[in-house]
Design a protein around this nucleic acid. Structure first.
Length: 470
DNA sequence: TCCCTTTTGGG
DNA sequence: CCAAAAGGG
């Protein structure tokens, strides 16, 4: 008599190390059926995140095959697929790592109760976050709304050690049917962009771990200074791996703490950034409307412009404001954008172009291979001034001043703006290969005039803000 | 994780 | 005269 297998339903946890749901199944001595389901929520991903998911799945499937296992791929509503795979394999039930966005929570709790009602095992595990959102509370018993107290509350907390990578996965007696990744065409909406962004992405668990090691060795000491300069390789770049769980936040946390105890100068700054991600998920869990509605209701009366021609120029990296355009082109070319550039590009859209932050949120959701629903929503509301713990609205970034300060040599702008350069570098040229042909842009065109002068844009934004208060 | 103008005070 | 601090959006 075969032991009944357990299904591991993988979603945003495409890794073998530090994986509580997988570890528990292996420890129970069960054969494992690794499963990914292309359900309606995964189908609804933006173009770049969906393409990146496909790359991550391919890498993860190869890693599983290296352990004598497989990644089973199935398309359909999650519950329906799970029922079929249980029937096909005689599995006892399912393990998964929890997700915390409202759509996933709704789906997962329905799946859990339906499976249990039919006598199957359904167990969810932590792993995507350092701390469960309900385990961090203010003195008064509620969720945190401000970053600094949140940081103080978690910075000294003990965290269980990292779980070792599983080294062996027992195959089930019968493998269920699997679809083929190529047939899913997860890169379809990326069109020409996929080939370009693929040059810059670093996919999979092995590369994520190597990236962390390299960052700690080469960049951590200078992190506090270098991280603000978008032309420098000062940041970890781990966000694209974190969002798919190719590395766990706990792995990063422990590694950075070790360096902190060794006296590494940038370690605390880096840990704080990791905790910003945690804070975003804490907020999103407790306030799921955060991705759709102004955090402060008074902002509903603000005269945001909806989508408009200026916003279209912003999306295309054609505003005539060099730092902003470099940022937007970096995103379209590489699938990521430097953190400082994100603040400036977002400030420019919401302030100088007076455009609703949700217009920007949606574009980032389309274009970022490191798209994270919580960080994206928190970041946009922070910049717009509508959010919790937000920058006051009148903190308007001056993109020219920021360029002066953080890109004094123009290296970042030159890296991504081809116009006017006799011999533009690869990334600047790549932009024109990545964009849709319908944009009809070429590297030898004249760089556009400014949509709005920095003074006029700033004055208009401040006047609108005064209108809201007056 | 700001920007701009005005004020201040040392020389 | 000027750099630094302060004030306010």
């Amino acid at each position: 008599m075969d032991k009944a297998p357990l299904i591991i339903w993988f979603r945003r946890d495409l890794r073998l190390h530090d994986h509580p749901a997988l570890q528990a199944a292996v420890a129970a001595g069960r054969p494992i059926v690794p499963l990914f389901i292309l359900d309606p929520q995964a189908e609804a991903l933006g173009a770049a995140p969906k393409w990146r998911l496909g790359e991550g799945l391919a890498a993860f499937a190869r890693a599983l095959e290296g352990l004598g296992s497989r990644l089973i791929l199935r398309r359909g509503p999650a519950l329906k697929v799970l029922r079929s795979v249980i029937a096909e394999t005689g599995a006892e039930g399912v393990h998964w790592s929890r997700l915390y966005d409202p759509e996933a929570r709704l789906r997962d709790s329905a799946v859990k109760s339906a499976l249990r009602a039919q006598g199957h095992l359904a167990r969810s595990f932590p792993g995507h976050l350092l701390f469960e959102p309900w385990e961090v509370e203010t003195k008064g018993g509620g969720p945190y709304r401000v970053y600094s107290p949140f940081w103080r509350a978690v910075q000294g907390r003990a965290l269980a050690p990292v779980l070792p990578a599983v080294e062996r996965l027992e195959a089930p007696a019968r493998w269920p049917h699997s679809e083929r990744l190529a047939d899913w065409h997860l890169g379809a909406a990326m069109n020409r962009g996929a080939r370009i962004v693929g040059k810059y992405a670093q996919v999979g668990e092995a590369r994520a771990l190597a990236r962390l090691a390299r960052f700690l060795d080469e960049r951590l000491d200078g992190y506090a200074q270098d991280r603000d300069f978008p032309a420098k390789p000062g940041t970890s770049g781990l966000s694209e791996n974190l969002t798919l769980g190719e590395i766990s936040p706990r792995t990063i946390w422990h590694a950075a703490w070790r360096r902190l105890h060794e006296g590494a100068p940038g370690a605390e700054t880096f840990l704080k950034e990791l905790v910003w991600r945690e804070f975003a998920w804490h907020l999103y869990y407790h306030f799921p409307e955060m991705a759709r509605a102004n955090w402060r209701a008074e902002w509903d009366a603000f005269p945001w412009r909806g989508d408009n021609q200026d916003a279209e120029a912003w999306r295309r990296g054609m505003t005539g404001e060099p730092f902003v355009d470099a940022a937007m082109r970096e995103m379209f070319t590489t699938g990521t954008m430097h953190n400082r550039a994100r603040m400036i590009a977002a400030s420019y859209l919401t302030k100088h172009l007076l455009t609703d932050w949700r217009v920007g949120l949606r574009w980032f959701q389309e274009c970022l291979i490191d798209w994270d629903p919580a960080s994206n929503a928190m970041g946009w509301q922070w910049v717009a001034g509508s959010g919790p713990d937000a920058a006051p609205y009148f903190r308007i970034f001056n993109p020219a001043g920021q360029a002066e300060k953080f890109d004094p040599e123009g290296s970042y702008r030159n890296r991504f703006l081809a116009e006017g350069q006799r011999n533009p570098p690869d990334p600047a040229r790549d932009f024109f290969s990545a964009v849709p042909r319908s944009w009809r842009v070429t590297p030898d065109a004249v760089y556009p005039e400014r949509l709005v002068s920095l003074d006029a844009g700033r004055a208009r934004a401040l006047a609108a803000y005064q209108g809201l208060r007056g």
